[in-house]
């Protein structure tokens, strides 16, 4: 079953730059997809359209049954609750502890305290940070901060986890750790993972589904593969 359906999508920014040309692809439930390509290939724009930070100029995007292109601003939260999103720069709240940062998601959607506690601990355990729940972000390494961000993204048990260059700020070893965590989530929770990256080493090593973009066009969509042309 296709969880994400993208059909004839074009995206032109207001300044006239076209980031995506006629993109059509489907992503199955439970898959682990690398969206790869150089700078300016449209990876980030593609991810942003999936969580409706950007609207496609034309075409259709269906994410988990929601027509993203037609989604009104006031209803965007309905889409976001089905998604977890991880960024290159972590985006943690510096004044909150690890636990509070993860719990923030649950609080924002109005979960009870008991439910929050249960799910937050479970998510932190999954990313291997249960021992550091009382630390603040600035007391953690980059890799650990990113794992907190992943925990925050998955705490609400989303069907899809979108990662925009999650390893961009990390050294190769930490990057591999993060990807392993994502793979673990993919396997144990069945969460569909879409990760934009330009880290060739990771992509080649993991041998997952790849979507290769170049200058906003889809060049390759393989069930399994590496970065090589």
């Amino acid at each position: 079953m296709d969880l994400i359906r993208v059909k004839n999508v074009n995206k032109q920014y207001k300044n006239g730059v076209t980031a995506i040309y006629d993109l059509t692809l489907n992503i199955k439930k439970g898959s682990f997809v690398f969206v790869i390509g150089g700078s300016g290939s449209g990876k980030s724009t593609f991810i942003k359209m999936l969580y409706r930070e950007e609207k496609p100029t034309s075409g259709e995007i269906i994410v988990g049954g929601i027509n993203v292109a037609k989604l009104r601003n006031s209803k965007v939260y309905k889409l976001r609750r089905k998604l977890g999103i991880v960024f290159q720069d972590y985006r943690l709240l510096p004044k909150l502890t690890v636990y509070e940062n993860v719990a923030f998601t649950m609080e924002s959607i109005g979960a009870t305290k008991a439910e929050t506690r249960k799910k937050v601990l479970k998510a932190l355990e999954l990313v291997g940070l249960k021992a550091k729940i009382h630390n603040y972000p600035d007391q953690l390494s980059g890799g650990e901060q990113q794992r907190v961000a992943i925990a925050r993204a998955i705490v609400n048990e989303p069907r899809i986890l979108l990662c925009d260059e999650p390893t961009g700020n990390l050294d190769p070893d930490r990057s591999m750790e993060i990807v392993k965590v994502l793979e673990e989530i993919n396997k144990t929770c069945g969460t569909t993972i879409i990760m934009a990256t330009h880290d060739k080493e990771i992509v080649n090593k993991m041998q997952k589904e790849i979507v290769l973009l170049k200058d906003g066009r889809l060049i390759k969509h393989l069930e399994k593969g590496g970065y090589e042309e």
Binding site: Y77, K78, L93, I109
Partner: peptide, 13 residues
Amino acid sequence: REISIMRLVGASN
């Protein structure tokens, strides 16, 4: 920052 994260994690308007 807090608001943008709230929006990302699905807080309603």
